[in-house]
Write a protein that binds this DNA or RNA. Structure first.
Lengths: 119, 119
DNA sequence: CGGCATCCCGTCCGATACTG
DNA sequence: CAGTATCGGACGGGATGCCG
């Protein structure tokens, strides 16, 4: 029974949450960014606290490298590791799907919200 | 600056969390399953409460259809909608990546756990 | 069989303020 | 500039038990 092994859970562990996928995606296209540069590059207003935390997770997972120049004022750069670059394959697909279905998702979510409000 | 629009956030809204992607993936390969059948098909021991909740989200998002035969005892079947089937594109890629990197992810996580214990 | 009710905990996400 | 401290709310996930 079953027999269908999946790697989906593994992948979700890596990109799940509101930000990690987005951060990875941005870094993949720039190959090295400073903290606030990255912060500004992300559309949805991410706070520095959240960005710091999510970046740390990505570093812990070996997807992103953190380079601290140890200067004053501080200068830290982030870039995707070779391992992290392998995520580009599915991130590209996720991005394409999201772009194609942006409209539909929005309206469906509005409907769901309306139903929830009625309760 | 920026200019890079992303659909990644949209996609993450749909499959994020520990289970939704997995449920969708299972349903995509069976095209109609009953509640407990689906429950048993999922490896990681999902509770009925969680499965019910996650399925409801997928139904609300229009990715899964719920067919209630209104019989006693109850018989409910779930199947992926045409819209839901469009997720197969990126889910396949996510699955492939996860399968390829299962080992690495495991060891990296163990290391992270060790570091956390030391604190 | 296919759920829902209750309780609980840990994580996620966020605003604000502050620091070396 | 690159974060950390603090506080708090929302959500995800799980154990247990009950119901039509």
């Amino acid at each position: 029974m079953d027999g269908q092994k999946t790697g989906i859970d593994i992948t979700l562990e890596v990109v799940c949450g509101k930000w990690k996928g987005l951060i990875l995606w941005k870094l993949l296209h720039e190959n090295h960014m400073r903290f606030n540069e990255l912060r500004r590059a992300i559309d949805g207003n991410i706070s520095s606290r959240i960005l710091a935390r999510e970046l740390k997770k990505l570093v812990d997972d070996g997807l992103v490298a953190r380079i601290d120049y140890e200067t004053v004022p501080p200068r830290v750069e982030y870039q995707v590791t070779p391992y992290g670059k392998t995520t580009a394959s599915f991130l590209t697909n996720m991005n394409n799907w999201g772009m194609e279905h942006k409209r539909q998702s929005a309206t469906k979510r509005e409907m769901a919200d309306l139903i929830n409000r009625e309760k």
